[in-house]
Simulated assay, not measured.
Amino acid sequence: MKMCIACGMPMTSLGDYPLHDMSKNYCKHCAHNDGTMKTFDEKWQEVALRYANNHHIDYSIAKHTAYVILKKLPAWKRKW
């Protein structure tokens, strides 16, 4: 099973891949409509918003948490 390099999501079916392209190493949630991968800043904002809403915490705390999580993933390691 492949894991998304940008968010860590398990990719277990064709529908998990952007444009159903199994050659991609990132998931549909980390892709733009054209299939290209989103930037770190785009994912950071999305993850932080989702985390804040799902866990009912302040956005600044969610943003820090999202940063800590994302920077450990393969797509973003070269950024540090």
Rank of each mutant, 00 (worst) to 15 (best):
M11C: 10
Y17Q: 07
M37T: 03
P10A: 03
A66T: 08
C7F: 07
M11G: 05
G15I: 09
H29Y: 15
H55S: 05
H29I: 06
V47Q: 06
A31I: 06
K77N: 07
N54C: 01
D58P: 01
Y59A: 01
S13I: 13
T65V: 13
H32D: 02
Y26K: 06
T36I: 11
G8E: 07
R50H: 13
A6I: 00
S23N: 14
W76K: 07
I69S: 03
W80A: 09
K77C: 07
L73K: 11
A52L: 02
H32F: 14
Q45F: 10
T65L: 05
F40T: 00
W80L: 14
M11Q: 05
D58K: 05
A6Y: 06
P74K: 14
V47C: 09
A75L: 07
M3F: 14
Y51W: 11
D34C: 12
I57V: 15
E46N: 08
A75D: 14
A48E: 03
T36Y: 06
C30V: 02
T65F: 01
M11Y: 11
E46C: 05
K28P: 00
R50L: 12
Q45V: 10
K2Y: 03
C27E: 00
T39N: 09
A48P: 01
K38L: 11
Y67A: 09
L19A: 14
Q45W: 06
S23K: 13
M3Y: 15
T36E: 08
I69C: 04
T65Y: 01
N25W: 05
G8H: 01
C30W: 04
A75N: 10
H20W: 05
M22W: 08
D34T: 05
K43L: 13
L19R: 12
Y67R: 13
T12Q: 07
K79Q: 13
C30S: 05
K38H: 05
L19W: 12
G15W: 11
D34M: 08
F40P: 00
S60P: 01
V47M: 08
P18I: 07
M37E: 13
D16Y: 11
F40N: 02
G35V: 02
G35F: 11
L19H: 12
H64S: 14
G35D: 06
T65K: 07
K28G: 04
K38W: 08
N53G: 06
M22R: 11
T39P: 03
C4M: 05
V68K: 13
D34E: 04
L49D: 08
K38I: 03
R78Y: 10
H20S: 12
L14H: 02
M1F: 12
V47R: 03
I61P: 04
I69E: 03
K2I: 10
C27I: 00
K71D: 09
L14C: 05
K28H: 06
G15T: 10
